[in-house]
């Protein structure tokens, strides 16, 4: 069994690749090879011990579908990939479109449809929530700075200014919103989403949908420590029945097929949950789900292979993850391998 995984960028805003691989290996049932698919020669995951066996550079999604497909085809000819697990938001549209062609060359995936991806996209989320009676903050789509003038007539500051894929800033006035607009649009393009700020505590759910509307598993987490750029650096598993029911309802409404991260805020004044985002892949904290008793990455691997997977019924609350940074020392020859040849072998076949 050879499983290709992306998102080995274990940086300050980590990709989910390494924890997904850790989950597969921790299952005790996985005895295969991990193929790392990386976008950058310095993605830490491929240099870490016991993470990936062999690694290949792949082109950024902006290079186009054909270039990506041709590179995957090359890797497949060398390795014979059984299952491919993409883990990054920005690449999912490409892999979803390529899924039928990948299947033709023997590579299985377990991905949402393009329609599903669009339904939960940040610019469509409010409409989805309204259609399914789910509370969500109001939003404005801004394609130019002019659109920011609508903020004061639609809702009050502060507001959350978000990129279509990544990045978010809390802005307290027009000037801050304008600065955030330029910062995000320069990096991630348009539109920018201006979201009403709901005051309360944030709660996240890591879940796996089987594509028929069933939730295979779901684990809730509250961030205990947040970095300056808003990333959770520690979190604790918890369980609140209304939150879990809401998560099931969302996955059922979308007929979600794949891993996902649902982000909520519990409004302080009403104690009601508002859906902030549906991320179309496992979160970087997915390993907490494994530690709490739901090995969602391994369940996804089984689903991708067409196996029947039993629904997880419970998990342990009070499990904590704490990230840390660690200076991994390696040799320039490894960097040379991936930078020059685009391939890095940690464990030969």
């Amino acid at each position: 069994m050879k499983v290709a995984v992306t998102g080995l960028n274990n940086i300050d805003s980590p990709g989910p690749g390494v924890p997904v691989i850790r989950g597969l290996k921790d299952s005790g049932k996985f005895d295969g090879t991990i193929i790392g698919l990386v976008y950058d020669s310095l993605e830490p995951g491929m240099y870490m011990d016991n993470v990936s066996d062999r690694n290949y550079l792949i082109p950024y999604p902006s290079s186009g579908l054909e270039e990506l497909y041709s590179r995957i085809e090359y890797v497949n000819e060398k390795e014979g990939i059984d299952v491919l697990i993409p883990t990054l938001d920005s690449e999912l549209y490409s892999f979803t479109k390529l899924a039928p062609r990948l299947a033709e060359i023997g590579i299985k995936t377990f991905l949402p449809t393009t329609e599903n991806l669009n339904m939960r996209a940040k610019d469509k989320l409010f409409d989805f929530c309204q259609a399914h009676d789910i509370k969500a903050p109001k939003n404005i789509l801004a394609s130019s700075v002019q659109d920011l003038y609508k903020i004061s007539s639609e809702f009050n500051y502060p507001v959350a200014v978000k990129g279509i894929f990544y990045d978010a800033y809390i802005c307290n006035n027009f000037d801050e919103a304008k600065t955030a607009f330029h910062k995000i649009s320069h990096k991630w393009g348009l539109p920018i989403i201006i979201q009403e700020f709901i005051k309360g505590e944030e709660y996240n759910i890591c879940a796996l949908g089987d594509g028929t509307g069933e939730t295979i598993g779901a684990v809730a987490m509250k961030k205990l420590y947040i970095t300056d750029n808003g990333k959770g650096w520690a979190g604790i598993s918890l369980k609140d029945d209304p939150l879990m029911k809401l998560s099931d309802k969302i996955i059922s409404a979308l007929k979600w097929k794949s891993g996902t991260e649902l982000e909520f805020v519990k409004e302080k004044s009403s104690n009601q949950y508002y859906l902030l985002e549906i991320n179309p892949r496992f979160p970087a904290w997915v390993y907490l789900s494994v530690a709490a008793g739901q090995n969602l990455p391994y369940a996804l691997l089984e689903l991708a292979q067409g196996k029947k997977v039993e629904k997880f019924e419970n998990y342990e609350v009070g499990k904590i993850f704490i990230r840390y940074s660690w200076d991994l020392i390696t040799d320039v020859s490894k960097f040379e391998e991936i930078a020059v040849k685009g391939e890095l072998v940690n464990k030969p076949e």
């Binding site: 709660y203 598993s237 369980k239």
Partner: peptide, 9 residues
């Protein structure tokens, strides 16, 4: 004291 429904301590 740990609140299992909210994660508060």
């Amino acid at each position: 004291l740990f609140v299992p429904t909210s994660g508060e301590t």
